[in-house]
């Protein structure tokens, strides 16, 4: 299992919300998942720390940020989305379409059942 020590470069992401112990702080599970995916991509050498920090900073210092910084991980996800499209891992259109499919899958899944992409209504 990956230990927090092994992921130090990403913990240095600009403005990262942290607990008193210095660990990243998350308000909701998707934030931790976004963080964890970024950690893995970085570990696999998909992008460097400086590439990541650059893209994240652009999102963080863009217009329309909330004053209380509660949208930090919105920026994180925007940065990760941009980076994977810039690296041609996927296209913006495919990612947007898949995002919508996941929302459709969630709507089509009864509460309490696991949400799976296959649950999205056919088109």
């Amino acid at each position: 299992m990956t230990t927090p020590d092994a992921i130090s470069p990403l913990v240095l992401s600009p403005g990262l919300p942290k607990s008193r112990e210095g660990d990243p702080a998350f308000a909701e599970p998707w934030q931790a998942e976004a963080f964890a995916m970024t950690v893995q991509l970085h570990e696999k050498g998909v992008f460097s720390w400086s590439e990541w920090a650059e893209v994240l900073s652009q999102e963080l210092y863009g217009p329309g940020r909330r004053a209380d910084a509660s949208d930090y991980y919105d920026c994180w996800v925007a940065a990760l989305s941009r980076l994977v499209t810039e690296l041609s891992i996927t296209s913006r259109a495919d990612l947007d379409q898949l995002t919508q499919r996941w929302q459709e899958a969630a709507e089509a899944t009864p509460h309490g059942a696991p949400i799976r992409l296959e649950n999205a209504p056919g088109r």
């Binding site: 998707w30 995916m37 989305s81 994977v84 891992i89 990612l95 898949l98 996941w102 969630a106 709507e107």
Partner: peptide
């Protein structure tokens, strides 16, 4: 009621789907 994914939840799932399919995560 049924489930609902926020824009962020859905986008993170979409990223996870793509990156898993590509063998990157």
């Amino acid at each position: 009621h049924d489930n609902h994914f926020s824009e962020m939840q859905a986008r993170v799932k979409a990223l996870e789907t793509v990156l898993t399919q590509k063998g990157l995560i």
